[in-house]
């Protein structure tokens, strides 16, 4: 939905220092530009649960990390997320790719569509679905506003970004 330059521009605007991530077929298209960005460090992890813990360490060390994973990784990383966001109340922000949302025929019956939103709701985070592929500029502005709102209120947040071809 977003181009790599758009994403890098957004993260620079929001002063993120590190992107802690595992790519999927959408997020992975941003990887080269993220790695080429001088102001953002790219931290690839092996499993999504790691991402929240690495981001937690970065945060308490004074950095401003973004967790960027697919919704399947959200499912995997529950205990790590719970610990960082709720035991220690670290206001981490994440971009989570919503697999197949824009073209649900790609993976018919994909259970990601059944569980992603209820799980985010269960965690009680500030989460917003961005699925308006024809309005990317407005969507990017909305993500920025959400992120800043989370920072001001000191709460964790998730930008749930619809994936697939619109």
């Amino acid at each position: 939905m977003f181009t790599a330059p758009q994403v890098v521009g957004l993260l620079q605007e929001l002063s993120f220092t590190h992107v802690v991530t595992i790519p999927d077929s959408t997020l992975g298209q941003w990887e080269d530009d993220l790695k080429a960005c001088d102001s953002i460090e790219y931290v690839g992890v092996c499993r999504e649960g790691e991402a929240w813990a690495v981001a937690a360490g970065l945060h308490v060390g004074g950095a401003t990390p973004l967790v960027m994973i697919q919704c399947t990784g959200l499912f995997e990383s529950g205990d790590s997320l719970r610990n960082a966001l709720f035991d220690y109340r670290l206001p981490l922000f994440a971009v989570i790719g919503y697999r197949s949302f824009l073209n649900q025929s790609t993976l018919p019956g994909d259970t990601c569509l059944s569980f992603t939103e209820p799980i985010l709701e269960a965690w009680g985070m500030d989460w917003v679905l961005y699925d308006q592929a024809e309005n990317t500029s407005e969507q990017l502005e909305a993500i920025a506003a959400q992120c800043l709102r989370c920072r001001e209120t000191g709460v964790p947040g998730v930008a749930l970004v619809a994936e697939g071809r619109a």
Binding site: A53, G57, L58, A63, S80
Partner: peptide, 16 residues
């Protein structure tokens, strides 16, 4: 979160 100490420490080391 059992298992995550090495990752947490990695984040600290990268930040500082």
């Amino acid at each position: 979160s059992m298992g995550q100490a090495p990752s947490l420490g990695l984040g600290m080391a990268l930040a500082q």
